[in-house]
């Protein structure tokens, strides 16, 4: 009969319409409360409205989610490499980057002119970045990672440090990376053979020291006092060692200070 097809179709629309209300009753008024209901709503069994109420509830991103890259830096109180970059400025990310949006200035020792395994400057032009994740995938030191922070809208892009992310803005502590991608971080740590930077692991293995079986921030959280003492001792030892070496003590302190400032700036910017 003519018109039956349309009615059939409208039936589907009607079903969808009522489904939403039936669904709401099923949740018993707790549709937007609690993570469990959220998971049901966003899962395959979802019926009815499944809207993510964005500013109030935010979808947590899966671990592999890729947005703009960031650089991993060690925790500011890490016993081995406090506040040190993981990046060794080997330049593989800049070479593999498809739109060539990564710019790295390699550090040089002011005296010997030999390259120092730490970038002097690191820039990512996020107006060119295509979020492909190659830099993170091919980095041999696990030092550059893809961020989950997508809330980056700006009123201006050409200002200093806005859409060309510089090193202070790119740097985020390892605990942040562990936060957003625990499984991947664990896989990578297994690949490296420990939770420290590959260089530290190599050194420790050479000297027979034990490597960390957990990331530093977790060890610290488990036993804050002892760890703090250990960190202080390690830092003091490092300071005295470098003090005997001459003017280098200033550099290390300076670097730690700069890192602190950068992190503070980053936090301030986030708010």
């Amino acid at each position: 009969m003519n018109g039956m097809g349309i009615l059939k179709g409208l039936g589907v629309t009607l079903k969808h319409f009522f489904q939403t209300y039936v669904d709401d009753i099923k949740y018993g008024g707790r549709k937007y409360i609690g993570n469990e209901n959220f998971e049901t709503r966003q899962g395959l069994k979802a019926q009815g409205a499944y809207t993510v109420q964005y500013p109030e509830e935010k979808l947590a991103m899966p671990e592999r989610f890729r947005f703009v890259p960031f650089l991993v830096v060690e925790e500011p109180d890490h016993p081995d490499r406090a506040g040190h970059d993981w990046c060794t400025s080997c330049g593989i990310c800049a070479k593999v980057c498809p739109p060539q949006c990564i710019w790295i200035v390699r550090s040089e020792d002011p005296v010997t002119k030999r390259p120092v395994p730490e970038p002097e400057a690191f820039f990512i032009d996020i107006d060119i970045c295509m979020n492909c994740g190659y830099c993170a995938e091919f980095c041999p030191f696990d030092a550059i990672k893809m961020d989950h922070d997508y809330e980056m809208a700006d009123y201006d892009r050409t200002g200093v440090g806005l859409h060309i992310h510089d090193k202070p803005r790119l740097s985020k502590p390892f605990s942040y990376y562990y936060d957003i991608a625990p499984t991947t971080a664990a896989e990578e740590a297994a690949g490296r053979g420990g939770w420290e930077h590959p260089d530290v692991i190599k050194e420790k293995k050479k000297s027979g020291q034990p490597v960390m079986d957990k990331p530093w921030h977790m060890l610290r959280a488990e036993d804050p006092e002892a760890r703090a003492a250990a960190a202080a001792a390690a830092q003091a030892a490092a300071a005295s060692a470098s003090a005997s070496a001459g003017p280098k003590v200033d550099m290390a302190a300076e670097r730690a200070k700069r890192r602190q400032e950068a992190l503070a700036r980053h936090r301030a910017w986030k708010q």
Binding site: P55, F67, D127, C129, N131, Y150, E151, A153, Y155, R157
Partner: peptide, 21 residues
């Protein structure tokens, strides 16, 4: 331009953030 939203492509949530901005 009033608002720039980075990302390639920005996820819907990123776009919503831009709209809120």
């Amino acid at each position: 331009v009033d608002v720039y939203i980075p990302g390639c492509p920005p996820t819907p949530q990123a776009l919503l953030y831009g709209l809120i901005s």
